[in-house]
Design a protein around this nucleic acid. Structure first.
Length: 279
DNA sequence: CTGCGGTCCTGAAGGC
DNA sequence: TGCCTTCAGGACCGCA
């Protein structure tokens, strides 16, 4: 669901629309999803919107931060006028195109009358205010810190299946189920392979595949598949779902060889792969 | 250290 | 039609 490409698309949009705005109010409609002293943030100006893995980080003028994790069903919608917060695209499960909606958890308002709505149907996500940036400190998968050498050392001593390791945020920040599956397909590696069993060439192929797939995901502004509630801050959908390589393609022909795509469970989550192309 | 299963939560989908 | 069960999944926690 919201993984690195989705969160990066949100971040970029919010960086443009929020930078320079001054916070006038922060309201929690679902109290458990907001933590920290929100009164301290009032009157503070937004200096930037950053990202750490799947966590959005709104930087304030006093070097405090609003960190937001969307988990599975979080949405961040921005309205230039909070009293006319109507979005053209149907927002799934919100029961309305007008914000606040049924699943709105937190509302951040600005002095110019604009507002940011945090919607989260399943209430797994969170908004945290404080002096620290939340989120993983491992190398972000699209940063210069993430190199082929980094991937090599991250996999070197692990017996975990490579698919599970790619999704471990302590190792690499930002990769979730969709992009882990598609990256392994592009690299021609079976998701069940133990991480430390990959050859030097396979590490190279996997590194290049991750880079390629994540940049493709960002290019299409993330994935808004049927059962996904991800939307950009203006309510529009991403389109990477039209470019899935193996994700959600169980039983369909492999795009390389035509073999049927298989689906298995790993660490409680679905993995999709071609038994012929991924060894 | 690893892996497993439960938990948070709600709505969709399938079975009968 | 309607009730019931199962599934979806990011991160985390407790336990073997």
């Amino acid at each position: 669901m919201p993984e690195l490409p989705e969160v990066e698309s949100i971040r970029l949009s919010l960086h443009t629309s929020l930078t320079g705005k001054t916070i006038s109010s922060i309201k929690a409609l679902v109290p458990k999803q907001l933590s920290g002293d929100h009164k301290k943030s009032l009157g503070k100006k937004i200096s930037a919107v950053e990202r750490r893995g799947k966590v959005v980080i709104i930087s304030l003028s006093d070097e405090t931060y609003i960190s937001i994790h969307l988990k599975l069903t979080g949405q961040l919608l921005f309205a230039g006028d909070k009293n006319r917060a109507v979005f053209n695209t149907q927002i799934p499960l919100a029961n309305t195109n007008t914000m606040p909606g049924k699943s709105t958890s937190v509302i951040i308002e600005f002095e110019d009358g604009s507002a940011l709505f945090f919607n989260d149907l399943r209430k797994f996500g969170w908004v945290r205010l404080g002096p620290n940036k939340e989120g993983p400190v491992s190398a972000d998968a699209v940063s210069s810190q993430f190199t082929e050498e980094y991937l090599k050392s991250a996999t070197a001593n692990s017996k975990k299946p490579i698919k599970v390791l790619l999704m471990d945020q302590e190792k690499i920040a930002g990769i979730g189920n969709i992009y882990a599956n598609d990256s392994l397909f592009v690299a021609g590696i079976n998701p069940e392979r133990k991480a430390n069993s990959l050859s030097a060439k396979e590490i190279t192929d996997l590194y290049n595949a991750i880079r390629k797939i994540l940049s493709e995901g960002i290019k299409y502004k993330g994935s808004s598949a049927k059962d996904e509630v991800y939307r950009l801050p203006d309510g529009t959908m991403g389109s990477y779902q039209n470019h899935f390589k193996v994700y959600q393609r169980e039983g369909k022909p492999c795009l390389k060889c035509g073999e049927k795509i298989l689906r298995i469970k790993q660490a409680g989550r679905s993995s999709f792969y071609c038994p012929n192309c991924q060894k």
